[in-house]
């Protein structure tokens, strides 16, 4: 789980161009959206692409993202339960 969380942090920094952040600076339990990383709806869509590309999980409803992208830990748990590879 911790390995997955770490991987996710790296992938998110890369996919969302969060160049001011390092893996250490991102708290796995903090909300991804709203304050904090300053992510917006386009970032949410990028995360959907990331899920499909890296874990084979296809989300057809962007609304679903709202639950899954609560925090990196929630996302990691979702991936563990649903990953295709």
């Amino acid at each position: 789980m911790e390995k997955l969380i770490n991987d996710l942090k790296e992938q998110i920094i890369e996919a969302l161009s969060l160049e001011d952040y390092s893996v250490e600076e991102i708290n796995a339990d903090e909300p991804l959206f709203g304050e904090g990383l300053g992510l917006d709806s386009i970032d949410a869509l990028e995360l959907i692409v990331l899920l499909e590309k890296n874990y084979g999980i296809k989300l057809n409803d962007p609304e679903k993202g709202k639950e899954i992208f609560k925090s990196i830990r929630v996302l990691a748990e979702y991936i563990n339960a649903n990953r295709a590879f």
Partner: peptide, 9 residues
């Protein structure tokens, strides 16, 4: 096939 929404914009 992974078009990036951010890039498309």
């Amino acid at each position: 096939y992974f078009p990036s929404p951010a890039n498309f914009v």
